[in-house]
Every structure is written in C-alpha cells, then in structure tokens.
Amino acid sequence: MLEAILFYILAAVLLGMGLLVITRTNPIASALGLVAAFAALAALYALLSASLVAIIQVLVYAGGIMVLMIFVIMLLNLHPDDLKPMKAQGLTVVSALMGALVVLGPVIWVLSPAGSQPPAALTAGFGDIFAVGDKMFTGYLFPFEMLSLVLLTAIVGALVLAKRKL
C-alpha cells in the first residue's frame, strides 16, 4: 500500500514537472521543473530497488547536467523578448501526448507479460554498487572503455564549437 501511495505521488510529480518543462516560456522555469522531475525519477528508481542508479541520477543529472544547462542559460543572458511564448502549438503537444498514450501505454499494459507476472525474487544486494560494478567491468568492459572516448569527444567538440577563435 505504501508503495502504491508513493508511486502515485511520484508519478504525479514526474508528469506534472514534465509538462511544466515543455510549457514554460522562461527556460529557467523549465530547468527547475526538470530538476524536480529528475528528483522524482530518482525516488522511483529507489522504489524499484535500484539504489546506485538513484544516487547517480541525483548526482549527475540534477547536480551536473542541470547546473551546466542553467549556467549556459544565465551566460547567454537572453532578453525576455527573445523568448517567444508557445504559439498555437498546443495542438501538437496534445496530439503527441495522445499518440504516446494511445500507442505505447496500452501496448505495454495489455501485452507485456511483465504486467501480469510477479517480478522475480531479488538476490541480496540487487542494484547496489557491487552488483552493478561487477557487471559493468566484466561483460561490458569494452563499451565502458569506449564510453571514455564519448566523453573525450564531447569535451573536444564543445571546445571546437564554443571557443572564440577557430
């Protein structure tokens, strides 16, 4: 019962904040909405016994990516006139939302065996740093190495695109 109450509260926060993100004119408001949504997500991860992921979500997303984004928004210091309010695009939003609901939701709801089966019994330490780390550094060592190159590329790319002189 507790899980259900928590789930519904978190889901409401998540979706509400998500809608906030895509409807606000001021990007700062959107960004704050996104932070809140990420926090709700982290809590949901915790509900799903993914402790490490929940922590990382807060640290990296809310703590890293969002700070970067807000920093850039502040840096560019946009004039409020530059930020046009949402025009008559409500229709697009509604249709996209309806599309997602109509197509994806029921497909998963009705057809997923996961929907009806009880979840697997968990081993001790499921989702903690040891279990995840063990998996990451054995079966997924190669993509992990390549991930370092992704970050390198991002750094070099940002440098190339944003530095003053070519």
Partner: peptide, 16 residues
C-alpha cells in the same frame, strides 16, 4: 502496483 505501471509512466513521460 505492477511493473506495468512503471512502464506506462515511462511511456507517458517519453510522449511528453
């Protein structure tokens, strides 16, 4: 609450 609830939540968020 079943996993399907989470999946639907995820689908709606994706849609947003």
């Amino acid at each position: 609450i079943t996993p399907a609830h989470y999946l639907v939540l995820s689908a709606v968020l994706f849609g947003i």
